[in-house]
Structures are given as structure tokens and as C-alpha cells.
Amino acid sequence: MRRSRGGTVVLTAAAILAALAVFLPVWWVFVSSTRPGNSYVENMTPLSWLAFVPVGGDLTNYSGLLSGPFLTGLFNSFLVAGLTIALGLAIAVPAAYALATIDFPGRGVVFTFIVVVAMIPFDAIAIPLSSLFQDWHLSDSYAGLVLPALANGFAIFVLRQFFLGIPAELLEAAEVDGLGRIATLWRIVLPLSKPALIGAGMMLFLSQWQAYLWPLLIGTSPERQLAPIALANLSTLFTVDLGQIFAGSFVLTIIPMVLLLFFQKQYTESLSTTGLKG
């Protein structure tokens, strides 16, 4: 009993330390973002505890940021991520369902192919792919930004693993009741698959939210700039407004964090079920 308590203390202390290690930099970015202009350096050289105390600052960096091109970037990032989730799931769900429930010839090969292709880092193919997109006149367009992220192998994988966990009896019963494949998917399977849909949706969202290279290659006009590009443009050859950059970084960081916090249960559940069947 005593040993167990000691272990608990050690593990709790380790958890608190790990949480602090993750939280402190984000907190520092937030506090620095409340200092106008470049005045955050006041407490940085030498490093003072005041660098972590949000006293004496204001939100002018946020108002400045949100009245400039960053706001358009933020809107575009949400639009592109939203379209990617909607259309990406529309592709991943039937693909995963087919791989999980239809015993067609070559199913194993197709599934292996999807998983292997998903392993290739997107950046490795971004340059030649962007040349193709230029030829197809998809540069500087929402279509160009969204299309490459739609067929997400990991999303298909997560959904397929989840669908495999749904009892076959349920699907057979639906078939006996006269439901076709699409109706079974729509009426029986999808209502049960909320965690997997949220997990796959989060993957699609994050793949777009943190994208930098592709938007750089494909769309950088002010109207179609994504938020990370708009943020990078705050640092020019001549001047840098670090206060606004901190504010932008904080906004870009906090949004996926809040989403993850909100959907934590379903996201964890979706990932933990991926190893159940194969």
C-alpha cells in the first residue's frame, strides 16, 4: 500500500512536470502577446518572473492583429479546414466502410496500399504536385488548397478499424430488415461511429490547420492566404512586431487545443479502438 502511494506521488509529480513543460511556453506566449509592440523584451533579458505574469499589458496586439490580413487568413483557414472535413469524411467514410464490410477481391492489397501511401510525408510530393496544380490552373484557389488533403489515409484507417468493431450481427439484422449498404451505413453504422468520425475529422482539421508548405506553393494572394502564412508575413525584411506575432501564434495554438479539449473523449476513444481489429 505504501509502495503504491509512493508510486502515485512520483507519477503525479511527473505528470505535473510534464503538464508544466507543455503549459509554460504557451502561457509565456500568451503573456508576451499582451505586451504592446516589442516591449516583452523588457522582462526577457535577463529573464524575470514578470515574463510570466500578465500584469500591465493589454489586448492591443489582438485588436491590431484582428483588424489586419490575419483575420482574413483565419477565416480562410477555417473555411479550408471545414471544407476538408466535410469532403474528406465524405470520401473516407465510404472507403473505410467498403474496406471493413465488403469482401471484394484485392481488398487487402487496397488497404495496404492506402496505409503505405499515407506513410509518405506530404512534403515529399508537394513540389511536383504543385507543378501539376499550376498546369491545371488550380494555383491560388480554394480548390487547390483543399483537394490534396481530401483523401486522408489515416482517416480511412481510423474509420475502417472502428467499423470492424461493430458487431456483424447488427449489420446482418439490418440486411434482413431490407436495408441496403448505404442505408445501413447511414442509419445504423454512422450513428454508432461518432467517436471515429470526430477522430477522423480532427485528423483532417489538423492536417489543414498546421499546413504551411502547400499553402505557400499554391495560394498566397491576400484573399486566399491561410493564417500561418499571414502570420509569417508579419515578419518582414525591415521590421518585426513581435507582440502581434505572439498574439497570432497564441490564436493559432489555442484553437486546436480548445477543439481537442472539447472532443478529448471521442478523439482518444477513436484512436484507442484502432488497435482492436485488423
Partner: peptide, 28 residues
Amino acid sequence: GTSTTRILPFAAAIGAGLLLLAGCGGSS
């Protein structure tokens, strides 16, 4: 054959979405 028939509207819906998306830009 029935399944294929039922899948077709679904595929068409995705195709329409992609076409709509393609219409969102492309003005170099």
C-alpha cells in the same frame, strides 16, 4: 447491382462537391 445503384447518388454528391470546390477559385 442494387448496391451499385445506391452508391451512385452518393458518388455523384461527392463529385458535385468537388466541382463546386473547383469553382471556388482558379483565377491566376
